[in-house]
Nucleic acid binder design. Structure first.
Length: 815
RNA sequence: GCCGGGAUGGCGGAAUCGGCAGACGCAGAGGACUUAAAAUCCUCCGGUUCGGAAGAAUCGUGCGGGUUCAAGUCCCGCUCCCGGCACCA
């Protein structure tokens, strides 16, 4: 076998990869163990939905994670690198409706196939910790955590307008609506009034903001979350109504413009609309207006953005500070579920109010001016000095904001407030293939938690998937009918299941724990491994999954179940895999199957190309020529290591040169695979090292040769695990290269005796020369000024200054 | 509209703290080996001008200014592309 390999120009990729796959399986090399002597490292990649096949995006994420995990093992960490399946979800249920195969059956078959694909890729997962969210041994704890939220007042039911996806036949959370469309199936989302379960994520809004300061994430992901949460400081103002015994409360970020409020506008859905118009002549027209506006979908609202429609209610409110009578309107531009669902109209200082007031002939009063005397050009939106504002006239906007909010507080007519854009997380789904919400609705006790000893609430098997009549659970009578756990009366089980984002909000904690059927996870294990040191995944979850998981961790922290408050310390957001400039997708007909790619090029070449062709956070363009190049490089390494050597040379200088290169490469690749996460330049450094070895390795002694080749193979091991293992064996080792220690560079070896520097005159390179590394500035300067090539440039010019940058360049500045 | 990120050879990209722009690879050209091809190995490869050539000069990191001995990198003003949010009061 060995002789065959040595003789070959090309190494047999299939045979080598198959050989080591088998041996690695026997050894169970990647089992994560707690250690007292080694520091821990938790390397996590987002687990896949088991759709049936890996796609190239998966190949990229798991390659990135695997390189990180392998590198950290070699530098001395004990590494947790787990994998599992985000296995609940609509596609399996929709497939069941089409084909009749139950979701459980198809999902488990898909998992088996994809697991085999991952094995082929040579990914270093600890499969003993595999998690499958659709199995009862996992979802019973998803249910238990739901109950924990329920007990802590963080899970509640509420009736209200929700996002309904007609394609998926279920509701969606706000985060799952993109441009008015369903994030999964792209259907236009409509509003429906339904009673639904929510998680009170808004209660954690401030902590979700603060926590971002403590994590090492890309700035744009942090900003996306900050914008999503949308914290906004301002004031609440109460306006007493003239005709009705009630007050309208509005939220404003500009309390300094309060004196310019000339009318109020309520959202069409506002609860005071009906009392305000009752018995008035305007009632009929207003009701028609409201009915029309409520039918407009979010989608249409967004698209027609700008057009303002409103109607006068016939009622008036009293300005809390001036006592003036101002009209109350209803307007389509006021959102029911932001702030208080009502705004004060300050047309002089708000773009939207300005348009609205002009359209309907409402009074415009300027109360802020750029300079205390001039009349502002309206609408004037910036801060300035207050005018026509009673006792606050002459005050700066910034000061006045606080002063007016405080005045309102004292008068019991409002005060400083903070509002958020983020809404509570709607988690009910009217579908079968998810974790059932463990609640029983009793006519006399209300919603009652399923007692813990009765968990899991199992998904029934005797279900038909017709796609008709709503959720199959609601139609399965022996699932629904159940006695109340509190009073024993006949009651009905909740038939909604949980959003699959609930399943994925805590899976990383389950991985970290030794398997237990007692609890979701053991605190001591979790505290050992958490937080995740590096989380690798796609940008599409920058808000959704990443925000939900952070919320979960904080709640579990508050419940005393985990020590950490932030689950993911560092985040690596990988770019898309594209082909012909567009994201790979079956519908565009530009997808590539990993089966084909891995079959043709093998794992190592596929990995190396993906790492080399672009930095991890950028989009990656697949190219046949590119993967060929990676394949060539690996073959080149193979030949270098295995080819027979003529006669060992003994060129001392060549040995010193290559040795220095080896140490420099160790340093470079270590930095690139470590905190810099620049896998593309790590590969290029190895290519350079390989090229250098080709030049001179035949001139060095056998000992030097062995050291140089071992170094190359060790550095290559995280990137091309199969080839590295094969060559490690060839170099005479019996143990796995993946258990070997990362080589250590000697700083003394990095220093060159002499370096070539560039010599500039007035910033232009005019000559080069070699100087000793130990020369001081003066010595370098003297040598440079004496350089013959410089004479034409220096003659007849006065030297103003000489800038010496050690080991790089000298710039002579002349008049 | 607001908030991010980006623009470097024919292509992917490198330049980590303001210090020789274009590492490494792909594509291309030439050569060696070969009966031939493939594979492999070696050399060249931003533009313009001058030169037979070696080489020299000069321009060059989206555009226009600026700071600096020195700018792909910092500052000011634009253009275009990508992403997020969008009547959020």
């Amino acid at each position: 076998m060995k002789e065959q390999l040595e003789a070959a120009d090309h190494y047999p990729v299939d045979r080598v990869e198959a050989k080591w796959r088998e041996r690695w399986d026997e050894r169970n090399l990647y089992r994560a163990e707690c250690s007292k002597t080694r520091p821990k490292y938790y390397c996590l990649e987002q687990f896949p939905y088991p759709s049936g096949h890996l796609h190239m995006g998966h190949v990229r994420v798991y390659t990135l994670g695997d390189v990180i995990a392998r590198y950290r093992r070699m530098v001395g960490y004990t590494v947790l690198h787990p994998m599992g399946w985000d296995a609940f979800g609509l596609p399996a249920e929709n497939a069941a409706i089409k084909s009749g195969v139950p979701p459980r059956v198809s999902t488990l078959a898909n998992i088996a196939y994809m697991k085999q694909q991952m094995r082929q890729m040579g990914l270093s997962f600890d499969w003993d910790r595999e998690v499958t969210t659709c199995l009862p041994d996992y979802y019973r704890f998803t249910q238990e955590l739901f109950l924990l939220f329920f007990e802590r007042g963080l899970a509640y039911q509420r009736e209200g307008a929700v996002n309904w996806c007609p394609g998926c036949e279920t509701v969606l959370a706000n985060e799952q609506v993109e441009d008015g469309r369903c994030w999964r199936c792209d259907s236009v989302v409509v509003k429906r009034d339904l009673r639904q379960w929510y998680f009170r994520i808004t209660q954690y809004a401030d902590r979700l903001l603060e926590g971002l300061n403590a994590v090492d994430w890309p700035a744009d992901v942090k900003i996306q979350q900050i914008n999503w949460i949308g914290r906004s400081e301002g004031a609440e103002v109460q306006f007493e109504l003239e005709a009705v015994d009630a007050s309208v409360s509005v939220f404003t970020t500009r309390p300094d413009t309060l004196f310019g409020a000339t009318y109020l506008v309520l959202a069409p859905e506002h609860r005071l609309v009906e009392p305000l118009i009752e018995g008035r002549q305007e009632a009929q027209a207003v009701r028609e207006f409201v009915a029309r506006e409520r039918q407009v979908s979010d989608m249409e609202r967004t698209q027609e953005s700008g057009e303002k429609r409103g109607i006068f209610t016939g009622s008036y409110a009293i300005h809390p500070l001036t006592g003036a009578k101002i009209p109350v309107w209803i307007g389509n531009y006021v959102l029911a579920d932001y702030g208080t669902g009502a705004v004060m109209g300050v047309p002089a200082h708000d773009q939207r109010d300005f348009l609205f007031a002009n359209q309907y002939g409402l009074t415009v009063t300027a109360v802020v001016s750029p300079e205390s005397l001039d009349e502002p050009v309206l609408p004037f939106l910036s801060a300035g000095t207050l005018i026509q504002s009673g006792p606050f006239t002459g005050m700066e906007s910034v000061k006045a904001k606080r002063a007016i909010a405080e005045a309102l507080q004292e008068a019991n007519q409002g005060g400083p407030r903070v509002t958020y854009r983020m809404r509570d997380w709607l988690i009910s789904r009217q579908r079968y293939w998810g974790a059932p919400i463990p609640i029983i609705h009793c006519p006399s006790c209300g919603p009652v938690a399923v007692p813990r000893e009765q968990l899991p609430v199992l998904l029934p098997d005797n279900v038909e998937f017709t796609g008709l009549g709503g959720s199959p659970l609601a139609q399965t009578e022996d699932f629904v009918q159940v006695p109340c756990p509190q009073c024993g009366q006949p009651a009905r089980r909740e038939t909604d299941t949980m959003d699959t984002f609930v399943d994925s909000s805590w899976y990383y904690l389950r991985y970290a724990s030794e398997k237990t059927s007692e609890r979701p996870f053991d605190r001591k294990d979790v505290d050992y491994w958490m937080p995740v040191d590096e989380y690798v995944g796609g940008k599409e979850h920058a808000i959704l999954h990443m925000l939900y998981s952070r919320f979960f961790t904080k709640v579990l922290h508050d419940a005393g179940l985990v020590a950490v408050e932030e689950p993911f310390n560092s985040l690596l957001v990988q770019g898309m895999v594209v082909l012909g400039g567009a994201k790979m997708s079956k519908s565009k007909g530009n997808s590539l199957s990993p089966e084909e790619i891995l079959g043709q090029w093998g794992s190592d070449a596929t990995r190396v190309f993906m790492l080399f062709a672009a930095p991890p956070d950028k989009d990656f363009e697949w190219s046949k020529n590119g993967v060929e190049g990676a394949h060539r490089f690996l073959q080149r390494v193979f030949r270098l290591v295995t080819r027979p050597v003529a006669v060992g040379g003994s060129d001392r200088e060549a040995a010193v040169r290559l040795n220095r290169r080896a140490h420099r490469t160790i340093k470079k690749v270590g930095e690139d695979l470590g905190d810099r996460r620049a896998f593309n330049t790590a590969v290029s450094a190895l290519m350079e090292f390989t090229n250098a070895l080709y030049q001179e390795i035949d001139q060095v002694s056998p000992d030097s040769r062995q050291f140089l080749l071992e170094t190359l193979v060790l550095l290559l091991a995280p990137l091309a695990p199969y080839l590295a293992e094969e060559l490690w064996e060839h170099l005479g080792h019996q143990t796995s290269v993946h258990e070997a220690d990362w080589p250590v560079f000697d700083p003394a070896q990095l220093v060159e005796d002499a370096v070539e520097i560039a010599i500039q005159v007035n910033g232009k390179v005019r000559a080069r020369m070699v100087v000793g590394s130990d020369w001081d500035r003066d010595a370098v300067e003297q040598a440079v000024l004496a350089h013959a090539d410089l004479t034409p440039y220096l003659q007849g010019h006065a030297i103003k200054k000489v800038v010496v940058i050690p080991a790089r360049l000298v710039n002579v500045v002349v008049a």
